[in-house]
Design a protein around this nucleic acid. Structure first.
Lengths: 293, 293
DNA sequence: TTTATGATGTAAAGTTTTTTACACAACGAA
DNA sequence: TTCGTTGTGTAAAAAACTTTACATCATAAA
């Protein structure tokens, strides 16, 4: 794709040629500039109708500013719009200064930001808010479970949630112990499940049984959706695939942290007391360095 | 013109119906969301080609979210775009389209990208390469250990390294068992330590003893540097602080994944064989869903 | 007034899209 | 296996759009 073409905009072109235009052509120019750029995104038919001129007049107008066909004009306009809309992050150039662009670090950074953006576009704002609500409800215990790879994420989320609220239970890594744990789940409890390819049958079974018991299942999965989505009240499809075939958990972790942050600020009153108490306990164990300030 | 129509955006509709979509239809949904909204402004022909599906599939996809014709869909999208463009506060460069800028998701995304950039600027390219070398050396066993919060990261890294090479040992979470493990560390082994505030005394002790034995210590810490940096051959100061006082592990995870990727491609010949074997074992256990394609 | 010229529209031809109808292949259940 | 179902694509019909050729109208100079 030929990038970087940052010459004059189409609006500039129209303004520059304005005095060459005949009266009927000026109607078009005015309409185009007055409803820029959307007016140019309709068909030439509609455009001419909106200006009360004929289609050939539109053609001649565009011909004057250098476009030999309406199609090409519209393509250019779309590209211009796309560049305007494209987010500022993408253009930040090289990341790790002084390292070659091809270095893993740079390639990975670009891939990860792309993942993040895709994930953001796929996540439902409503789902996010509703899950936050669920996690803030002290009446619901929260159970977490992950698969072979995602286990670490459920661990991380559990560690953070425990600091904020009570009733957080992380299921053991081995599926054999899950039935035992299922006994402890009550209807209206929340089960956070992490499942990415390859999807694990044990997890699916667990989620189904839990859902049958009336447990609210929240699923963190990849863009291909684990079959557990079927039983889940909310699903977060996180984009994991980076270029050249390796998967990244960065977007998943990002989502986890966003959730923790949201829950924490929502429960602030209770949570801050709980956190202070935790600090005191840490101080007493003497296992941590005393903070400087 | 019916103005003020601020119902669900088309992106919302797509997200809401995402799990009803068939595989081919998801390609379209992903493409539409991934290049939103410009991807929807081409002809149905180009759109289908870009997704490598047929035009009728596009029609069916749009049908599912309530549009009975492609034309009507595109009209709606244009109107949405027009409203966005005329509303100065709205989107431009926003990530999660349709969510207010102040929403946790957007604030967190911005913070995380900033962290990533800071981290990239502080990491030594040489250190990175040298650590990759260490991890690729089959003669050195690799030990991993983390603290209360970072434990999940060491877990994640261990899980991935195990797939690639042999001799990967994750230390248990409880410090009481570490002395026992220290017996197994040989000079020239590698110890990967994760330590962020609050720095843990037990970890420091462990790292010191290991360093004394001639173990190569590699430290993942935050920008304030754990005291372990003293004994470490290589330190990665990862930026963890996001605005408003919460810490993020995203940059840490990013670094971990970059390392794994580098090691994997460096050891490709051996690693791919090992990974294939793992696949076969998984197939035999029957615990995983068989992949479609 | 006539005539030439420029401005604009009409209508039809050519092209591309959209839409529909139907066929084929993959898959799961009987 | 066989059969029905479901997912998806092919291809042709229908519609819309773009472009061209040419006609008409208005204006101004002779």
């Amino acid at each position: 794709m030929d990038q970087g073409e940052s010459g004059p905009t189409i609006a500039d072109l129209i303004r520059a040629h304005f005095n060459e235009f005949k009266p009927a052509e000026r109607k078009i120019a005015n309409h185009l500039l007055g409803n820029y750029p959307m007016a140019g995104l309709t068909s030439i038919t509609e455009l001419s109708a909106a200006c009360q001129v004929s289609t050939p007049t539109v053609m001649r107008t565009l011909g004057r500013i250098g476009f030999t066909s309406f199609t090409r004009f519209q393509k250019a306009l779309k590209q211009e719009l796309a560049e305007t809309l494209s987010d500022p992050i993408a253009k930040h150039g090289l990341w790790a200064t002084g390292t070659p662009r091809e270095h893993v670090l740079n390639r990975a950074a670009e891939a990860v930001v792309a993942n993040l953006r895709d994930t953001m576009n796929h996540i439902s704002y409503d789902s996010f808010n509703q899950v936050v609500e669920l996690l803030c409800d002290p009446g619901r215990a929260v159970h977490l479970v992950g698969g072979r790879i995602t286990h670490a994420f459920s661990d991380y989320l559990a560690t953070h949630l425990e600091v904020i609220r009570r009733g957080v239970r992380q299921l053991p890594a081995s599926a054999g112990l899950w039935p035992h744990h299922l006994l402890d789940m009550a209807a209206d409890d929340v089960l956070l499940v992490f499942d990415v390819r390859r999807y694990e049958l044990d997890l699916q079974g667990l989620a189904r049984v839990a859902a049958d018991k009336g447990v609210e299942v929240v699923l963190f999965t990849d863009q291909w959706l684990s079959p557990i989505a079927e039983y889940a009240g909310h699903s977060f499809p996180v984009h994991t695939e980076a270029a050249s075939g390796w998967d990244s958990g960065v977007a998943t972790l990002f989502l986890i942290e966003a959730l923790v942050t949201a829950v924490e600020s929502r429960l602030w009153d209770g949570a801050s007391e709980r956190m202070n108490e935790l600090e005191r306990i840490f101080d007493r164990t003497g296992r941590f360095r005393r903070l400087k300030e």
